[in-house]
């Protein structure tokens, strides 16, 4: 049985009970006579049943992000033995410049500077949105007040010690920005990466994620995220294209 767009539309309408009665009855008769169609409908039914469980989907997505975050930390830890070497290299680079050798080491340091410059050029703090009806809660009001006044450590303490951000994805954006403002791109990445594709804040989270990777001197991950944003084709596409171009130069 050939799978077509029309077939899928019909099956989905049938499962959602939006088919007019006559069409529904005709479709059921067709299913009775065609076991292949019946099987196809059952497959769709199973898929819809599993993925309708949004909580479990979100939980699974969270685990995937945690796994990725831990892997990155482990890779960074494994590379940390080169930290001492790179500190030595920075000192050696100055000397090498004077005596005219080791230009490759200086080039690496320059790349890090360039990433910092790009970050500074493209980053602007996520603005404080007006207090909405749901924000009559004083705790939330105080968090937004702290954020607006630059008291980022308070924002971090408040949000990390509560479950507020789990029910309000917008708060993860504020928390991630607070981490960026306090020179902690690692924890910022965790926040932005945990916002799922179904959230209305997903695109903006991806934008800040790309900048956080840049701040952490991870241009490859930044490029990957920028490509995601471009594919997403939303309001950050143009910005992402520009930054991607500069990063690739």
């Amino acid at each position: 049985m050939k799978r077509t767009q029309q077939l899928f539309d019909k099956i989905e309408a049938y499962l959602a009970r939006t088919l007019p009665l006559e069409e529904r009855e005709a479709f059921e008769k067709e299913m009775d006579e065609n076991p292949e169609l019946q099987l196809e409908v059952e497959k769709h039914r199973e898929l819809h049943a599993v993925f309708a469980d949004e909580d479990t989907m979100a939980f699974k997505q969270q685990l995937i992000e945690i796994s990725r975050s831990i892997r990155e930390e482990e890779e960074a830890a494994a590379a940390s033995t080169s930290k001492t070497t790179s500190r030595f290299l920075k000192i050696a680079a100055s000397i090498a410049l004077i005596i005219g050798i080791g230009s490759a080491i200086w080039y690496t340091y320059t790349i890090q500077d360039q990433n910092n410059d790009l970050y500074a050029a493209y980053y602007s703090r996520y603005p404080v949105e007006d207090v909405t009806r749901g924000d009559k809660d004083n705790v939330l009001k105080n968090i937004l007040k702290d954020y607006a006044s630059g008291a980022y450590k308070n924002v971090i303490d408040s949000l990390e010690n509560s479950n507020l951000k789990e029910s309000n994805q917008r708060l993860k954006i504020y928390l991630g920005n607070s981490y960026l403002q306090t020179e902690n791109p690692k924890d910022a990445i965790t926040q932005f990466a945990s916002i799922t594709p179904s959230s209305r804040y997903y695109e903006i989270a991806q934008w800040y994620l790309s900048l956080a990777h840049l701040k952490k001197n991870q241009p490859k991950q930044s490029i990957k995220t920028l490509k995601n944003i471009i594919e997403f084709n939303g309001s950050y596409k143009r910005k992402a294209e520009r930054l991607l171009q500069e990063l690739s130069e």
Partner: peptide, 10 residues
């Protein structure tokens, strides 16, 4: 993922 999540949400 985003599209199908919305579809499965109805």
């Amino acid at each position: 993922q985003q599209l199908l999540t919305l579809l499965f949400k109805g």
